[in-house]
């Protein structure tokens, strides 16, 4: 199958530090791919380059076979890439429903409409999306009042509103309680599968990764050190050594 996203020899340095060093990988259509690594491994840097927030020093990024190098976040969004942030970002002064309505309006290219009020625009669609993420009951609340877990759900709805081909999720479960984490990821996985969306996500929680990711790639100190399914990664000595240090954590999991 032709890969949807292809990363070739991606490089980025800050000062003298190579944050991302010659990283290449591919993401197949419909795949649920995890990008893991310890703190400072270069996950977020890598992500921000895919998203267009950061310009790489070298290498190439292909989306559907076409380079998206040098494009900004909005242009990349136009090509069908949605995104959620490590520190979830939604628009606090809007209601939950309005948040999604605006995302839908943006998708429809109606941002510059100056006259017709937003109130009724795409309201049904927005409520439906909120229903999908289990937030319909809170649709009328100001977004700034939401609990963090709910913010993450709304953010997911925002990302889905533009019907992306590829969804980038930067630590989607950061800051959440363990039970919520699994719920959110199951939810995300179900929604993208229904819609045929491919996902690349970074994640801290190993439980989540090994339970949900179809394939895993591992970064350490900016370099890609391993990729494969959960079992392969768990067994990989390089991963055990560099990522988990003594390997205690994996040992415990196996036990």
């Amino acid at each position: 199958m032709k890969p949807l996203l292809e990363v070739r020899n991606l490089r980025k340095a800050f000062g003298g530090v190579r944050a991302v060093d010659d990283v290449s990988f591919a993401l197949a259509e419909g795949e649920f791919l995890a990008l893991i690594g310890p703190n400072g491994a270069g996950k977020s840097t890598c992500f921000n380059m895919l998203n267009g927030q950061l310009a790489p020093d070298g290498g190439d990024i292909l989306l559907g076979g076409k380079s998206i190098l040098g494009l900004g976040p909005r242009q990349i969004w136009k090509r069908g890439v949605g995104r959620t942030f490590q520190v979830a970002a939604i628009w606090g002064s809007l209601t939950v429903c309005e948040n999604v309505q605006i995302a839908l309006l943006a998708h429809a290219g109606e941002v510059f409409r100056l006259w017709r009020p937003v109130a009724a625009r795409y309201r049904e669609e927005a409520l439906a999306l909120l229903g999908d993420v289990g937030m319909q009951a809170q649709a009328q609340r100001p977004a700034r009042e939401l609990a963090y877990g709910d913010v993450k759900r709304v953010e997911l709805a925002l990302a889905l509103a533009s019907r992306p081909r590829l969804l980038l999720m930067d630590e989607p479960t950061a800051g959440m309680a363990p039970r919520e984490r699994n719920e959110l990821i199951s939810l995300a996985r179900r929604l993208v599968r229904e819609r045929g969306i491919s996902v690349l996500f970074t994640e801290h929680s190993m439980d989540v990764v090994f339970a949900h990711a179809e394939r895993i790639i591992v970064l350490a100190r900016g370099r890609l050190i391993a990729q494969g399914d959960a079992a392969t990664i768990q067994a990989d000595p390089k991963v055990q050594e560099t990522y988990f240090g003594s390997g205690r954590m994996l040992a415990r999991r196996r036990a």
């Binding site: 998203n51 909005r74 995104r83 628009w91 809007l94 605006i102 990302a159």
Partner: peptide, 10 residues
Amino acid sequence: DSPLRAEATG
């Protein structure tokens, strides 16, 4: 509110 989110949403 969030320029980052806005840009990423188009």
